[in-house]
Write a protein that binds this DNA or RNA. Structure first.
Lengths: 220, 220
DNA sequence: TTCATAAATGAGTTACGACTCATTTAGTGG
DNA sequence: CCACTAAATGAGTCGTAACTCATTTATGAA
C-alpha cells in the first residue's frame, strides 16, 4: 500500500488554498523543507526567502512573525498525521475481515511503520513542536483528542464486545500502541538505518496479540 | 524508594571535580537549570553568566564555545541515566526474588516511572540532545550500547533459561520496555499533570507480563 | 491606456548573542 | 611583603537574524 508522504500532502494542501499566491506557497514549502532539514531554530527567515526564491520582505507580507510561519506549517501536518494515526475501520470491516487481533494489528502497523519510515524528517518537525513548544501543546490536545476517541475507542469496544480483546482501559491500549510506534520512530532516528521493518512488524503483531488476547484469569 | 534526582546527582558530580573552581561549578549548574527551563537554543551565555553570578568572560574561560558547555552538561547526565535504566540484578536476586515476570516488571517499572516523574525537565534536555543533535547521537550509542547489552540481556537470558519468558529477541524486548517508558514520559510531558502513576504501573505490569509469559504455541 | 490596489522588493534598522581581550583581582610560594 | 600565576572581569567587537518600509512592479477593472 503506497502512502502519500507528508511533504506531498502538504504541497497539495498549500496549492489548494486560494488565499495563497504562488510565492506564498513557495515560502511555506521552503519553510517545511528547511525546518525538517535544520530545525526551526536554526532556520533563518533569509534562508527561507532564498530557498523560496523570493525577497525577505515577501516572507513577512503575510506572516507577521517567524513563529506564525511555523504555525502555518505545522497545522496542516498535524491535521494530516492525526487522522492517519487514528485508523478508521468500518464496523463491517471489523466484523468480516478482522476475526482475530493479529490480523488487525498487522493491518494497522503495516501502514503506520511505513508511514514513519517515509516521513521521519517531517515527523521530527511535528514532534519537536509538540514536545518542546509549550502552548501549542494544549491547542493540539484539544484538537486531537476527539478524533482519537471517536475512532479508536469504538474499534476497541467492538473487539471487546466480541471477546477478542482484554478489558483493559482504552486509553492505556492506545497509549501502548502509540508507545510502540514512538519507540520504533526513536529507533529509526537514532540507529543508523536500515532497520528491518518486516522483523519489527512481525514482532509487534506477535507481542501485542499475546498481550491483548483475553485469558480468563487476567484482568486489571 | 527514594531516588536521587538528576539535578542533585549533577550537583554532586560537579562538586567532586577538583579541576572546577566554585564559579565554574556554578556555571555548569546554571547551564543545566536554564537548558532545562528554556532549552539550549533559547539560553544565551549571558543568561548563564547572570544566573551563575559571574561575568560572561568567566563562562568562556574553561569552555571555548557554548556547545562545549552543553557537552559538559549532558555527559554526566547521560552517564547517570543509562545505568539507572539498565537495571543490574544479581543472579541470586533473580532466582530467589523473581519467581515470575510480574514481580520483576513491577520492581523495574516502579523505579523507572518515579525516575521519569522526578526528572522530566532534565530528561527533556537529554532527549532534545539525543534526538535533535546529530553527531552526539553516534557517540551516545557507542557509549550506551555495551552497558545495556551486558546488564539487561543477561537478565532476559536468565528468565528465558527458566522458561519464564518467551524466546523473542532480546533487543526487541528491551525496545518494548523502553517504548513503554518513552510513552509514559510523553504522556506526562504532554498532558497536564497529574498522571495516575499507580494505575499506569499496574497496567504496565499486567500487560507486559501477559505479553512475555510463554505459551507453548507462540514463537516468532 | 489609465488608474487603483495588491504583491513584491531589498536595503536598512535594531537587537541580541557568541565570543575576545586588555585589565584587575585573588591566591600562593618564597 | 613581594612576585608570579591563575582566575575573573566586563566593556567591546563582530556577525547575524528578525523585522520594517519606502519604493517598484504586477494585476485588472473602467
Amino acid at each position: 500500500m503506497t502512502q502519500p508522504k507528508i511533504r506531498d500532502y502538504f504541497q497539495q494542501t498549500v496549492a489548494a488554498d486560494p488565499d495563497l499566491t504562488p510565492k506564498q506557497q513557495a515560502i511555506l514549502q521552503a519553510s517545511l523543507d528547511l525546518f525538517a532539514e535544520q530545525g526551526f531554530d536554526h532556520t533563518s527567515t533569509s534562508d527561507i526567502a532564498q530557498r523560496a526564491g523570493v525577497a525577505e520582505g515577501t516572507v513577512y507580507r503575510r506572516y507577521k512573525t517567524k513563529n506564525a510561519i511555523r504555525e502555518a506549517v505545522v497545522a496542516p501536518i498535524i491535521d494530516h498525521i492525526v487522522p492517519s494515526l487514528a485508523a478508521d475501520f468500518t464496523r463491517e470491516e471489523l466484523e468480516t475481515k478482522y476475526t482475530d487481533l493479529a490480523s488487525f494489528f498487522r493491518s494497522v502497523f503495516a501502514n503506520r511503520l511505513e508511514f514513519v519510515n517515509d516521513n521521519i524528517k517531517e515527523l521530527k518537525v511535528a514532534l519537536e513542536m509538540v514536545f518542546f513548544t509549550p502552548g501549542s501543546r494544549e491547542a493540539m490536545i484539544q484538537h486531537v483528542g476527539p478524533i482519537v476517541v471517536d475512532n479508536i475507542m469504538g474499534i476497541f469496544d467492538d473487539f471487546k464486545a466480541r471477546h477478542l480483546m482484554v478489558d483493559w482501559p482504552n486509553d492505556l491500549i492506545v497509549q501502548t500502541m502509540l508507545s510502540m510506534l514512538l519507540g520504533y520512530f526513536a529507533r529509526v532516528v537514532m540507529a543508523i538505518p536500515p532497520i528491518d521493518t518486516q522483523r519489527e512488524l512481525d514482532y509487534f503483531v506477535a507481542m501485542l496479540t499475546q498481550a491483548f488476547t483475553p485469558k480468563p484469569e487476567n484482568q486489571v
